[in-house]
């Protein structure tokens, strides 16, 4: 019971909200950490130290800029789905070090939706 109580309390207090770009663009509290998910927009830039890229909604064009420092995953490319922990700083979102993960290039491809 102790373990269960600890889990419930700490999971809510230590968790980050999972958000898509349009949700963060509509309003993100400065200093608060979010788990940003979406697709990489064309035109990203890596100068060897910082990775500057925009993430858009999976099903829409709204995007937010991210400035990330740390390991750039090998599968990172335009159009790939990414997950990164970010916090807002001014007009951009700062990606927390080594939190950027890019989904595997579809070992099992998503099925095409009808229509």
């Amino acid at each position: 019971m102790l373990l269960a109580g600890g889990l419930v309390y700490t999971s809510f207090s230590a968790s980050s909200e999972v958000k898509e770009p349009s949700q963060l663009a509509a309003g993100a509290a400065p200093g608060r950490t979010y788990k940003l998910t979406g697709k990489v927009v064309a035109g990203w830039h890596y100068d060897g130290k910082h990775l500057l890229f925009r993430v858009r909604d999976r099903g829409g064009p709204i995007s937010v800029p991210v400035r990330y420092t740390g390991v750039k995953p090998d599968p990172f490319r335009t159009g790939r789905e990414v997950i990164v922990d970010v916090h807002k700083a001014g007009d951009t979102f700062i990606g927390e070090r080594d939190t950027l993960v890019t989904k595997c290039p579809s070992k099992f491809k998503a099925e095409k939706q009808p229509g």
Partner: peptide
């Protein structure tokens, strides 16, 4: 889990039917 896409995972096996 590998096939559902219900959770955010590095393993993008795709949301399948």
């Amino acid at each position: 889990l590998v096939r559902s896409g219900v959770l955010e995972s590095i393993h993008a096996f795709g949301a399948s039917t």
